[in-house]
Design a protein around this nucleic acid. Sequence first.
DNA 1: ATGAAAGCGCTAACAA
DNA 2: TTGTTAGCGCTTTCAT
Lengths: 339, 339
Amino acid sequence: MTASRPRRPLTLRDVSEASGVSEMTVSRVLRNRGDVSAATREKVLTAAKMLGYVPNKIAGGLASQRVNLVAVVIPSLSNLVFPDVLGGISAELDDTGLQPVIGVTNYSPAREEMVLYDMLSWRPSGVILAGVEHSKASRAMLTNAGIPVVEIMDIDGEGIDTLVGISHIRAGREMAARIVAAGYRRIGFVGTHMPEDHRARKRLAGFETGLGEAGLQLEAREYYQGGSSLLKGRELTGRILGRAPDLDFLYFSNDMIGAGGLLHCLDKGYDIPGRIGLAGFNGVDLLDGLPVQLATTDARRLDIGRRAARLVAGKDTPPADRIVALTPSFRPGDTIRAT
Amino acid sequence: MTASRPRRPLTLRDVSEASGVSEMTVSRVLRNRGDVSAATREKVLTAAKMLGYVPNKIAGGLASQRVNLVAVVIPSLSNLVFPDVLGGISAELDDTGLQPVIGVTNYSPAREEMVLYDMLSWRPSGVILAGVEHSKASRAMLTNAGIPVVEIMDIDGEGIDTLVGISHIRAGREMAARIVAAGYRRIGFVGTHMPEDHRARKRLAGFETGLGEAGLQLEAREYYQGGSSLLKGRELTGRILGRAPDLDFLYFSNDMIGAGGLLHCLDKGYDIPGRIGLAGFNGVDLLDGLPVQLATTDARRLDIGRRAARLVAGKDTPPADRIVALTPSFRPGDTIRAT
DNA sequence: ATGAAAGCGCTAACAA
DNA sequence: TTGTTAGCGCTTTCAT
């Protein structure tokens, strides 16, 4: 038995009248707050359900000065890594009454600023955002918001409040060390050329540092723009090996183009990992079924999401130094010689 | 020059006092509404920026009874298709002042109900949600909300308000017709077993209808649960061909497991598309670099997102029959014999 | 072009 | 256990 189509959205008052109970008590029942007798409770719930009442959180938020939203700001949804992070956040927020609201910046600081402004105007209970590089205005907004702010993915830089992530500089450096230890010497890099993808940039910087520590340097680089796909990985790999045929290792800025590169090398019949070795970054499960498994670094995406969520939810307290540093783990796969 | 850290969030009143202009005029400036002299305008903007004022949309929404949010409800983010849909929505909403808010249901009707309840309690200007199958309560909520409701992806079923999508029944049926026309006769299916993935179910049903019209039927099926990956596609394909080695075609419920199946067949050295043909569904670009291109059907994800967004934004008016039917397009790839 | 008053629908704080 | 009152920060409406 449903009520007929209302022209005006229902309010607490409607439920109050239908149940013969004060608005305040109705409010209490609907929020499970305070003591309400079982009988009243029943009456109210029945009336609310019959009318099809949906509370107005706009009004509720204004009155209580409290909003159960957590702003989550990420650069992209099509980059495979972010859905994983969101999964971790969402899982950990599930039993807290907090709800994530997602904003996408497309790696643009200007857009990030707009998205933040928009989200903060809803007065969320906390903010989780990717990266530590933000415009001055963004930093100011976040500082002034007076709510927990967790910057995720990257811990190389100055945080606003709390950081949760891995060091990409170190991840790049350690990959270089492994590659050198495995005996590779003529090493090339294939990666994105987005100036705003700071994490990719830092990995490369760390990688070059690592090579330098072994007295080596990058022999060739190939950059691309836009999203990553197998096809692009193939093309770029063909190109870099065309220019520098004697490379014996390729480091890719992510698994997707790394896998494309791998397919190119398989196509050409190169001996992997003997003649040439390959490594990507992220640890994307999606690609696990390829004929040969790409070496990579697991970026701990799920854990990053979880830890960040626990912090904004108040389940964890931030460490004294305000940095939660996770350890990326190396996955050898089949594309790098055993040391 | 930034103002010092405020303990209390800033209000219009603060900007009003700092600029010596009434709250009302400040409000007008900040929303570009009504006539305000250039001088006043300047004063207000300066004051607002200096203080770092961020408007309170909670209060604004309550006062104006208008909220610039569009609820977007989808089953999953890790399924590659939804980010594409979101891309279309986001692109089309960009110049409307409307903002998408994403909710994820994990293919659970109960969760969909909760997500909807939650989102509707923020009084959004419209709702876009995937699929036409919803709980009775969900339908009631949406009907009573008094806002545009666009159900996307699927047009096989009864809509609440407006539908934008493709017919999955027809997509399955047409794929069957092509396969039969190409001369394949012993056909198997590999797909998800989620009872709540209605679109996959309908494609299979349409596919079987199509086979039936040619006097054929499925020779074998292999179901799986959970997400799709290359690895899973490999395993299932190995399994189904183990059980039914004489199959000459495999229809997969999506491109990801289809690609896995393809890799398995390449591994085994099967003649593709001679000895065995393969087809997936969706038209996912990500996989374009595989050694052999999988036949598939482009599900028009981006267009679906765009058209849905145009409808909720009022850029388009719904057709008389309230159904925007898009035509999925077949992509032959290399895994199906030429007709 | 600008301002003053009222009130959006709810909840905090207090009273009964 | 239930009810009353005031007011959250903004926008609508009307006045000037």
